[in-house]
Design a protein around this nucleic acid. Structure first.
Length: 491
RNA sequence: CGGGGUGUAGCGUAGUCCGGUUAUCGCGACAGCUUUGGGAGCUGUAGGUCGCAGGUUCGAAUCCUGCCACCCCGACCA
């Protein structure tokens, strides 16, 4: 069979690439750096979207939609923002094609040059804040709590399916507030929504923290993030939430009248997660046999595989299988009955393992006699015989257990691979030997951060929010430090 | 964007250095029979712009030029 994966130990990055393709999540398109998200992969993304969208709505946000194109001049208005994104923008310069005179196809019509070029959005702060100017006059118009689900384009030099693609899907929340405190509160609230989502739905433990000045979002006063640890010991930034201060309000002249009748600039936050979460999900839990999906995000939670020798046997099993299916569906469990007679059970077992279906129920003639089914869980590969009575309740419990077990396993992995380091030699050795999340003292300067990055490739992922104060000396410079920060090699 | 590698049927590949009948093999697909509690067996059939575009040549998968895409390493980044 051609569907065996390269093992993680052999070549982690090859394993990842093969898994994404063989599990039918996505494939490369004809366009450099852009992927086709296939139905199975997209249905996982839809589950993520649905859960996040509900969390956004529950915290008072509404969805809206802003244009794909941004006038180039908008980017000049916030200096650090343009500095951060200028190098990776796709630019629309013309609006028309024409037939080539030599009949070789179509060419750009030079007569159709745009007066002002349009940028394909790499993020929407500028177009949104330009719009907000018209929406906000008074403190009564605030806060604005808006999210948009959209695609964005960042012309990255090196791409990888889901982890970094030229075009990607994401959501971006953009909020406007009357006070700094309120905007900061929003920034932190949404960071917590992300962390909560990661743990509850993705079974992914994360570290919440604050970015250093170097790693801050272009145009933000403060950037918060959640960082997760992948199985190869590298960290992955899984979501960010920014306190933008009044930077965009000033750039786009968005002021409001306070209760006292004074004109003041509006305070802002923005926050986002992307299809990169798919990459995090895949890399955090999957094994050498394929995908391992937490039940809450699995498109198919339970697959039923009949085992039969004859058409009559299949019919008898099908009757029981359909009863089980209905019982499970009535408890909101998504079930697929794979009664194809064109593939053998072993083939189906392997296929659903590759695709990460959390629970498999096999029913054969023996089971019909004994009123049992064979239940196999994807996370541990354990198989056991279940009495068919109240099966839906048992399966519901099992799904919860699997969800929890995957989280526990990931958390344990993170704990084992998180450690304190107190000297430079130890730091370098830890990075080259095991990777993982390293807590070390840092003198707080960008110079030191930069030097550490150049010498080891490790970056400060964040200054964790729940960081205890602790006196120490910087592992690199030996200068005094008040707390440890989180270092890792990152995706 | 710099360095290295790759591109031959849906997938994986031989052939490329050293040009020469009808482009190799396996998996998969299709048909039939036998099978079905961990990726089935046998027999037969179909499937190819050799990444794309030029060029050299009597003749190009093979040599030359340009381009496109993917993979790895760097720089950049969610």
């Amino acid at each position: 069979m051609g569907k065996t994966l390269t093992s993680r130990a052999e070549n982690y990055s090859l394993w990842y690439n093969e898994l994404v393709i063989k599990a039918d999540l996505a494939e490369h398109s004809a366009v450099k750096g852009c992927m086709v998200i296939k139905p199975y992969g997209y249905s996982i993304w839809e589950k993520m979207q649905a859960a996040l969208d509900k969390m956004f709505k529950d915290t008072g946000h509404s969805n809206a939609y802003f244009p794909l194109f941004i006038p180039k001049s908008f980017f000049s208005k916030e200096a650090s923002h343009v500095a951060g994104f200028a190098k990776e923008c796709a630019v629309v310069t013309h609006y028309r094609l024409k037939n080539a005179p030599d009949g070789s196809g179509v060419i750009v019509d030079e007569d159709a040059k745009l007066e002002e070029e349009l940028i394909v959005r790499p993020t929407s702060e500028t177009i949104i804040w330009n719009t907000y100017r018209g929406w906000i006059q008074s403190y009564r118009d605030l806060p604005i709590l808006v999210n948009q689900w959209a695609n964005v384009v960042r012309w990255e030099m090196r791409t990888r399916l889901f982890l970094r693609t030229t075009e990607f899907l994401w959501q971006e929340g953009h909020t406007a507030h009357a006070t700094s405190d309120e905007a900061i509160e929003e920034t932190e609230k949404m960071l917590n929504v992300y962390a909560d989502f990661a743990e509850r739905f993705m079974s992914l433990p994360v570290v919440r923290g604050r970015k250093t000045e170097n790693e801050r979002f272009a145009g933000a006063l403060d950037t918060f993030c959640i960082e997760a640890l992948m199985q190869d010991g590298k960290a992955l930034q899984a979501g960010t939430s920014h306190f933008l201060g009044q930077n965009f309000a000033k750039a786009f002249d968005v002021k409001f009248a306070t209760k006292e009748g004074k004109q003041e600039y509006v305070w802002a936050s923005s926050w986002g997660v992307s299809t990169r979460l798919m990459g995090a999900l895949i890399m955090a839990h999957s094994d050498d046999d394929g995908l391992v999906l937490p039940p809450m995000l699995a498109p198919i939670q339970v697959v039923i595989v009949p085992i039969f020798k004859s058409e009559e046997e299949l019919n008898a099993i099908r009757k029981v299988a359909n009863e089980i299916k209905s019982a499970l569906v009535s408890r909101n469990i998504s079930v697929k009955l794979d009664d194809r007679d064109t593939h053998k059970p072993g083939f189906k077992f392997a296929e659903y393992e590759l695709k990460g279906v959390p629970v498999r129920i096999a029913i054969g003639p023996r089971d019909l006699e004994n009123k049992t089914v064979e239940v196999a869980r994807r996370d541990t590969k354990e198989k056991s015989l279940y009495q068919i009575t109240d099966l839906e309740i048992k399966i519901e419990n099992l799904l919860e257990q699997i969800q929890k077990n995957i989280l526990d396993k990931a958390r344990n992995f993170m704990n084992v691979n998180t450690y304190n380091v107190d000297s430079w030699d130890e730091f370098k050795q830890a990075l080259s030997e095991k990777g993982g999340m390293i807590y070390a003292h840092w003198d707080g300067t960008s110079e030191t951060e930069e030097k550490i990055k150049n010498e080891t490739k490790a970056t400060i992922r964040c200054i964790p929010l729940d960081n205890p104060a602790e006196d120490g000396v910087c592992v690199y410079s030996g200068n005094p430090s008040k707390q440890r920060v989180l270092f890792a090699i990152a995706y």
